[in-house]
Simulated assay, not measured.
Amino acid sequence: MSQEIPFFNGRIAPDGGSFDAWKTQSLLDSLEQGGLQWPSSCRSGTCRTCIGQLVSGQVHYEMKWPGLTAEEKAEGCVLTCVARPLSDVVLQDPFA
């Protein structure tokens, strides 16, 4: 009997490191737990300090509408402090 893995693989592109993207926590928490730096402030999805570009993968939000416009969401922008992974994810390095 196979046991479900509690996390997905996360990576910062182009070569910023990898991390375990835990299904039960935000991408920001997973990044920090993996020892990676990411800009952050409010941690509630409103200040937009942690905004990032999702290169590949899927996320979901616990809140109805995080602080992103429909256009930003369509372009792949995510708020890492409130986004949770639904698959393996690749984020664009915010410091590059």
Rank of each mutant, 00 (worst) to 15 (best):
S41H: 11
G57Q: 06
G57W: 00
A83T: 07
R43G: 06
S44T: 14
P6H: 13
A13L: 11
G52T: 03
P14K: 07
I5T: 15
L91Q: 00
A13D: 10
F19W: 06
W22M: 12
A83C: 07
W65C: 07
C77Y: 15
R11V: 15
C50L: 01
M63F: 01
P39Y: 05
A83Q: 06
G67D: 11
A13Q: 12
T24A: 12
G52N: 04
R43Q: 03
G52E: 06
L79Y: 07
T80N: 03
G57P: 00
I12C: 06
K73I: 15
C81N: 12
L27P: 03
C47V: 05
H60A: 13
V89D: 02
F95T: 12
S30R: 10
E4G: 12
L28T: 02
S41Y: 13
G67N: 15
G34A: 10
Y61W: 00
P94L: 08
S41A: 12
F95H: 13
P14G: 10
P39N: 05
E32W: 02
E75M: 11
Q37Y: 07
F8M: 11
C77W: 14
L54A: 02
S30D: 01
V55N: 08
L27F: 04
T69L: 11
N9L: 14
K64G: 12
L91H: 00
H60P: 00
E4S: 15
A70T: 13
Q33P: 05
E75A: 14
P6R: 03
Q53C: 02
E75F: 06
H60C: 01
E4W: 09
S56P: 00
Q58L: 14
Q3M: 13
S56V: 05
Q3Y: 15
P14A: 11
L68R: 04
D93Y: 04
S2H: 14
L54I: 07
M1F: 07
I51C: 10
N9R: 14
A74E: 14
F7Q: 09
S44C: 10
T24V: 06
A96D: 15
G16W: 11
